[in-house]
């Protein structure tokens, strides 16, 4: 059982790397806008500052408000530690298959939205309402693309799915392309990125995620922010696992692990580069165009399912 410490190390790596990844996105976007950018480590500096600050609570905050950051953070980290990043076969990945993994994130979101409602401001309620609405609309599309992916591997266990992808010869599969497209759209929505939500906005009537955490301060805010960074990296890792796991190792040998680490980091930063490009070139959607965006994701995923049966089964 040498893989358990390895797994914990891997989860720790993901958690610690997440702020850097967020800093990377911010830097690339700044460069694309002809600005210098704050550098890769700025999110870490922000977190460190927030952790050191005293917490100021609203006078009517209940225990839900203080409890929520811990739930959000732990559920996200738990989900992150179930996702294989370097090793294909990790003991904890059996804890949650893709569906359970998504549900862990949904638990985090549930408490995030409750925390938004707790103080009783219009902003918090607005954010909670929109977040829950959009995530509800994203859910069918997400499930459908997971469904498409599970057709090949006959499984929703990440380990089995990765092994299936690694063991089958590379070929053009339209269904997977559809599933990938849908998954990317959902990842944008789930992480509150442009074109669905703007993570850098404050004091706008269109904000969603930021509206829910407006009243937070100090370590609570730090946990919330950190959790959303981890979620971004987690989704990137999930997409890597499902669609391009090449480079991951089956057994814990040092050289293979190093290679897997390099491959993983490169792939993550590649995806995040694509994200920053997309965020620079796309405009934020009007609020009520988001449902259309998400239903398109569902349609694309469903087309993936159909094209699997139409094109790949008989072939």
């Amino acid at each position: 059982m040498s893989s358990l410490p390895l797994q914990i190390a891997q989860a720790l790596l993901l958690v610690l790397l997440a702020p850097v990844a967020a800093g990377f996105v911010a830097s690339v976007k700044a460069r694309l806008q002809n600005r210098h950018g704050p550098g890769l480590l700025q999110p870490w500096r922000n977190l460190a500052k927030l952790f050191a600050k005293q917490v100021v609570l609203a006078e009517n905050a209940s225990w839900i408000f203080r409890f929520a950051p811990y739930v959000v953070f732990t559920a996200t980290v738990m989900a992150a530690s179930c996702v294989p990043a370097l090793l294909v076969d990790t003991p904890l990945s059996l804890t949650a298959d893709v569906i359970a993994l998504v549900s862990l994130l949904a638990l985090a979101r549930f408490f995030l939205a409750l925390a938004g409602m707790d103080i009783g401001t219009a902003f918090g309620g607005m954010g909670a309402s929109r977040e829950m609405t959009f995530s509800a609309l994203a859910e069918p599309a997400l499930l459908m693309s997971v469904f498409v992916l599970s057709l090949g591997a006959h499984s929703t266990n990440l380990t089995t799915m990765i092994q299936h992808t690694l063991n089958t010869p590379i070929m053009l599969q339209p269904s997977l392309a559809f599933a990938l497209a849908a998954m990317l759209m959902i990842a944008l929505a789930e992480n509150g990125r442009i074109p669905v939500d703007n993570p850098t906005t404050h004091l706008e009537l269109t904000m969603v995620h930021e509206a829910m955490i407006l009243e937070y301060s100090g370590r609570h805010l730090a946990l919330m922010e950190w959790a959303s960074m981890i979620k971004l990296t987690l989704f990137a890792t999930l997409i890597i696992d499902l669609f391009m796991p090449w480079g991951m190792v089956a057994g814990p040998d040092a050289a293979g692990l190093l290679l897997a680490l390099v491959a993983w980091v490169l792939k993550i930063f590649g995806l995040l580069l694509a994200l920053s490009l997309a965020e620079t070139y796309l405009a934020k959607l009007r609020l009520f165009e988001v449902p259309e965006f998400l239903s398109m994701a569902f349609v694309i995923a469903f087309l993936g399912l159909l094209s699997h049966y139409m094109l790949e089964v008989n072939a």
Binding site: Q54, V55, V56, L57, A58, E59, N60, A61, I119, G120, T121, A122, F123, L203, L214, E215
Partner: peptide, 9 residues
Amino acid sequence: VRRGPIWSC
């Protein structure tokens, strides 16, 4: 932990 009035922007 310090308690304060609601901020709400």
